[in-house]
Design a binder for these strands. Structure first.
Lengths: 147, 147
DNA sequence: TATTGTTATACTCTATAACTATA
DNA sequence: TATAGTTATAGAGTATAACAATA
């Protein structure tokens, strides 16, 4: 049930649910390739964007992104190794570490947003701007983020 | 970056790509639970539906569903153990096995389609019938299954 | 030489357990 | 007792390698 570049199997393409999962997987791969071109994984960018609002404790990063604590340890390690973020002592709680966004991280966010916006334009090219807006609206209704 | 039942993280919900992956994952889980209620995994049903057109060689099942050969071995093993399909000798090629759909498999397909249609109705309940049709149309354009 | 089915193996992701140091 | 961070480990799911039988 893997998803490749050829398009969905015709026999199953009339099921909306199958189309949905195929389009999402296809879009996710496209997005992942775009971010990889600036040396990031999707999760890296998600963490960086959260840190843009200020330093954050790792445990709260895990909660906000719905990843398990050990995963966040790895992600922060990688971001630190890339020089995009770093751990510092927490001012009030000696158990916790504050994860800070570094200037290089701010710049990398801008690059990532540039390539990901371009990737989105490519992916949604089959739709007119009006259709793309409609698509977003319908997704938001399904996600329950609008009434 | 896991997806749970609470709805997408508000901070990321304005990105169409993130909404898309969240909705697809949510829908996939809903579909998976529905099929599990009749004892099937999504891949099981996909195989059974393909076999409805007649017996098929395992290698072609793998190709059609884009799964690797060892995965198909496991799936056919499971379907055989469930009594829904079985391996028989291929009439012309002694290397290959013909996978046949059994009467119990035909009945199970009907049950699975019943619960999966109900699951789809539940999942797409936030949309009007007209919107649901539009959503399918836009997905089909993105998947390239219509011009 | 290529293909079918199978077994064995590896690799990634996801999830849990256990431990420390604090609170 | 509970929480933060880390390490270690376990489990799916996915992908590759290698093999015997046959074409």
């Amino acid at each position: 049930m893997d998803v490749n570049e050829k398009g969905p199997p015709p026999a199953l393409a009339q099921w909306t649910g199958f189309l949905l999962s195929w389009v999402a997987a296809s879009g996710g791969e496209h997005y992942g390739r775009a971010l990889a071109s600036v040396g990031l994984k999707p999760q890296h960018l998600a963490v960086l964007v959260l840190l843009r609002d200020g330093p954050m404790v790792q445990a709260r990063l895990s909660e906000r992104l719905n990843v398990f604590k050990p995963v966040m340890v790895t992600l922060v390690n990688e971001l630190a190794e890339l020089g995009l973020a770093e751990r510092r002592a927490h001012p009030h709680d000696r158990r916790a570490v504050h994860v800070h966004l570094l200037p290089a991280g701010v710049r990398r966010i801008r690059e990532a947003e540039r390539v990901s916006l371009r990737a989105a334009d490519e992916f949604f090219a089959p739709l007119t701007p009006r259709q793309r807006q409609t698509f977003h609206h319908l997704l938001a209704k399904l996600a329950g983020t609008e009434t």
